[in-house]
């Protein structure tokens, strides 16, 4: 089927190649004989390994995307992005305070942001990167956690930041602080852990383990099913 599709010209590291319409950047590279080692991970848009930069034959403006998700277009110039090093602060989460001051002390380059918005334009997930950088500057960890939540940590924002900020690692710090310190504790989870440790369910589980398969099948078929739709869905 791919063989019947219309062929389009793309350029891989400057070499002209013809590929069928409808391939992704990743499958187009493979179609043209490149066997991936780096720059290929989940192949489904979740791991960020295939973050890539491209432009067009007569349009020098750089564009950014995930090679496994982006469909090739005529006259695309493709490169493979090599490993890109980025700063990551080392810390002991248990000894941190969830404050903006702490985030700033671990990622002091934050103050160098001059608002060019390159990070936002670069993000293949279309996140408002510059906005969450400014949230971090204001010490609003909750907002950083929320706005950065869909980040794949592909690293393109850091690779392109003219001031050397590392928004994706900074945002991960904020999300971890938020999860560890700023979300309310789940009482029901704590209770259940205490109950399990106290052996509350030991007898029930032991009985099920001893139950003969036929009887276990009956119990399974007859078990009551909680409705999938919550009573108080917000």
């Amino acid at each position: 089927m791919a063989e019947q599709a219309r062929l389009i010209d793309i350029y891989i590291m400057g070499r002209r190649c013809q590929v069928p319409e409808g391939l992704t950047i990743l499958t187009a590279l493979e179609y043209c004989g490149y066997r991936m080692i780096r720059g290929c991970g989940c192949r489904a848009g979740f791991c960020g390994a295939c973050a890539t930069i491209y432009n067009f034959k007569n349009d020098p403006q750089l564009r950014y995307d995930l090679a496994c998700q982006k469909t090739v277009e005529p006259d695309m110039y493709l490169v493979q992005v090599p490993f890109f090093p980025a700063v990551k602060a080392l810390y002991d989460l248990e000894k941190l305070e969830a404050t903006g001051g702490k985030v700033l002390s671990l990622y002091p380059d934050l103050v160098k942001c001059f608002g060019c918005n390159t990070c936002t334009k670069t993000c293949p997930q279309e996140l408002e990167v510059m906005w969450f950088v400014s949230d971090a500057l204001r010490g609003d960890i909750r907002e950083v956690a929320d706005k950065s939540f869909d980040c794949l940590m592909c690293g393109l924002c850091a690779a392109r930041c003219p001031q050397g900020l590392v928004p994706y690692n900074m945002a991960l710090l904020c999300r971890r602080l938020y999860g560890r310190y700023l979300t309310p504790v789940s009482e029901h989870l704590e209770e259940r852990i205490t109950e399990i440790e106290a052996g509350k369910f030991d007898a029930d589980i032991e009985e099920l383990k001893k139950t003969a398969e036929k009887e276990l099948r009956r119990k399974y078929t007859e078990r009551d099913m909680e409705p999938a739709l919550e009573q108080h869905w917000e």
Binding site: R175, G179, T183, V185, S186, E187
Partner: peptide, 14 residues
């Protein structure tokens, strides 16, 4: 959660 995973929760922690 202790390591910082953000679970989907209600405002009361449920």
């Amino acid at each position: 959660e202790q390591l910082g995973v953000n679970w989907d929760k209600a405002p009361d922690g449920t």
